[in-house]
């Protein structure tokens, strides 16, 4: 599989009144064509910030380290995403080769402009097609995502659609420019389970049809198990474990990943107690030294966890984990 996008040593800090706050630290991963990567972590783990970096979309006070590199492979050659500055150049990663869908579609559509008008506008921005043709494609896309009577819906406003329909319209809009990479930030979190199941099915079909890469951000490991090929787990801005979805869910190596799975209510074992990950995620202003997870880790080894940053260790060729326990096992 050829890489579609490569992220290397991504470190991102935000300049604030209280000083520089680290949001993402030394994160590397790549996504191939047609691959779905699940990005998991608690609020504050840096998953949304990482995803936005792919579109160079973080706020003005974001500071990228000089080592940070994001390379997008397009048909016309590689693009160094972080070096793009002008709105013109950025078009390729914002709605062109990369599209994004959000958790709350009501907040993402302009409320006073019809859905069709917004879809046409985006298509015309990214190509030189005529208005009539853009409208035709918009209606086709609405039909493709399962919106009934698309020729009528295209002239409606976002508030006239139900939550599930709005999310479908959002997906239609994101896919109309035929992006290579789709970033989905908690796309089903606000939906009911029955509607979530429909939207997930739709997304699976679309991946197969359009053969795009997807970054699927969610805190729901069930959704990940159902959609992703590989999983990356983030904690306090660091990528602490990455591997194929079966491996990570059945054989998690990092104590944090194990904790997330133990905290999940499971339907096949109602007797199992729910075990929360102890403590709260530390404030970004009080970033722990050494392993970022050591303040909450149930398998804390002592000084080494407090002082030394754990290196990435390969559990097998595709499964890596950053934890001293595992490094110790490898060495023993």
């Amino acid at each position: 599989m050829t890489a579609l996008i490569e992220v290397e040593n991504l470190t991102l800090k935000f300049r604030t009144d209280e000083g520089l706050i680290t949001a993402v630290e030394d994160v590397s991963f790549s996504i191939a064509k047609g691959e779905v990567m699940g990005l998991v972590g608690e609020s504050g783990s840096g998953k949304s910030v990482t995803a936005k970096a792919l579109m160079h979309l973080n706020a003005k006070n974001a500071v990228y380290s000089p080592e940070s590199r994001i390379t997008l492979h397009t048909d016309s050659g590689p693009v160094d995403v972080l070096s793009l500055t002008t709105a013109r150049d950025l078009k390729v990663v914002r709605g062109g080769a990369i599209s994004m869908i959000f958790q709350e579609p009501m907040a993402s559509f302009a409320p006073a402009i019809t859905i069709g008008k917004q879809m046409v506008e985006q298509l015309q921005l990214h190509s030189d097609m005529s208005k009539a043709r853009a409208r035709e494609i918009s209606i086709e896309m609405l039909d493709r995502v399962g919106i009934s009577d698309p020729a009528r819906r295209v002239d409606q406003y976002a508030f006239e659609l139900s939550g599930g329909m709005r999310q479908r319209a959002m997906i239609a809009m994101a896919l109309s420019t035929k992006p290579k990479l789709l970033i989905a930030d908690e796309p089903t979190t606000a939906l009911d389970v029955t509607i979530q199941a429909q939207v997930l099915d739709l997304m699976k079909d679309l991946v197969a049809e359009f053969h795009m890469g997807i970054v699927f951000i969610t805190h729901d490991l069930g959704v990940i198990a159902q959609t992703a090929d590989k999983v990356s787990v983030m904690y306090l801005g660091r990528l602490i474990e990455e591997g194929p979805v079966r491996e990570v869910i059945r054989n998690p190596k990092h104590p944090y990943t194990q904790g997330l799975l133990a905290a999940l209510p499971k339907l096949d074992d109602l007797e199992a107690p729910l075990t929360p990950v102890a403590g709260d995620i530390p404030s970004p202003l009080e970033r722990p030294t050494g392993c970022v997870f050591h303040t909450r880790c149930p398998k804390f080894l002592g000084d080494i966890c407090k002082t030394a940053l754990p290196r990435d260790e390969k559990v097998d060729p595709n499964h890596r984990v950053a934890c001293h326990i595992h490094s110790a096992e490898v060495m023993a």
């Binding site: 389970v193 199941a197 490991l221 198990a225 979805v245």
Partner: peptide, 10 residues
């Protein structure tokens, strides 16, 4: 409703 719950089994 039950069958719509995403299963943890990939």
């Amino acid at each position: 409703l039950f069958s719509a719950i995403p299963s943890l089994d990939p």
